[in-house]
């Protein structure tokens, strides 16, 4: 897991909405292969932070320095827009809470998975389809569903399809916003298990936002606890959950049934 440089170096990231604070002065490093959980209640700034990190939202202050494959560490907001968009389509993945935000509902499952390949220039139908089939299998979607429309899929399948669509381009960094948030509890377990396995097998670096501490415990190596836009505590996941130091974290942990 340890490499010479972090994959992501975040410094002083701040985003306001007028007078209101989205997130304030957030700094951290994310190392290759590391899963960072961001936890907190709704409105704590988790999603704003994730959007700034993943270049979906421009911060008011601060830097997000990403270790690009070819040019080393670069502030993503200093990159030209084409480069940044290319990065987002290839080296990064974004898994939205609601799969419909991350999928094309009007085209088949196979096309959804194959799109990123085509977007970076794949022009061989046979190979694109083979990749799509492979990835459907890896996210436990039956191969004979490849030509079906996503609207015929269950919620859990849609979320797995969204994951396959993101991972097909072999990203190094994946942002996840409440990946299990829209699913029934019984389906959550399966998805978590799948994510856990994929992250470990592929050596992905992940920033996952969740309000569910059980999800954080299963997926994240490290946690940041956010409150009112600021990080109040961070550390090893089980340490933060089992020996919380900050009053807010203690309240958060005490408020749930089985962390």
């Amino acid at each position: 897991m340890m490499a010479a440089t972090p994959l992501l170096q975040v410094r002083g990231l701040t985003r306001r909405y007028g007078a209101r604070i989205g997130c304030r002065d957030v700094s951290f490093d994310l190392w290759p292969g590391e899963v960072l959980g961001i936890v907190g209640e709704s409105g704590s700034g988790k999603t704003t932070l994730l959007k700034c990190l993943s270049a979906q939202l421009e911060p008011d202050a601060g830097q997000v320095v990403y270790a690009t494959r070819d040019e080393g560490p670069r502030d993503i907001f200093a990159l030209s827009e084409p480069r940044r968009r290319l990065l987002m389509r290839t080296d990064w993945g974004i898994v939205h809470q609601h799969p419909v935000e991350g999928l094309r509902m009007g085209v088949s499952a196979g096309a959804n998975v194959g799109e990123r390949l085509m977007a970076v220039g794949a022009r061989n139908y046979g190979r694109i389809r083979a990749s799509a089939l492979d990835w459907l299998g890896r996210v436990e979607i039956a191969r004979d569903r490849i030509d079906d429309m996503p609207r015929t899929f269950s919620g859990g399948m849609l979320q797995r399809l969204q994951i396959a669509r993101n991972l097909v381009s072999s990203p190094r960094l994946v942002f996840m916003d409440e990946p299990t948030g829209s699913l029934d509890v019984s389906v959550q377990a399966r998805l978590l298990d799948l994510l856990h396995g994929l992250v470990a097998d592929l050596g992905l670096s992940v920033v996952v936002v969740t309000h569910d501490l059980a999800v954080a415990r299963l997926l994240a190596h490290r946690l940041m606890v956010m409150r009112a836009g600021s990080v109040v505590e961070e550390g090893l996941t089980d340490q933060v959950l089992d020996d919380p130091q900050h009053a807010y974290t203690q309240l958060l942990v005490a408020s749930i049934l089985h962390p």
Partner: peptide, 22 residues
């Protein structure tokens, strides 16, 4: 407009993919 400006046309093949798949 941004997609045109940046020549981001790869996803256009999705439509052709759907044709071949169907």
């Amino acid at each position: 407009r941004k997609m045109h400006a940046l020549s981001e046309y790869g996803a256009m093949h999705v439509k052709l993919y759907e044709d071949v798949a169907r």
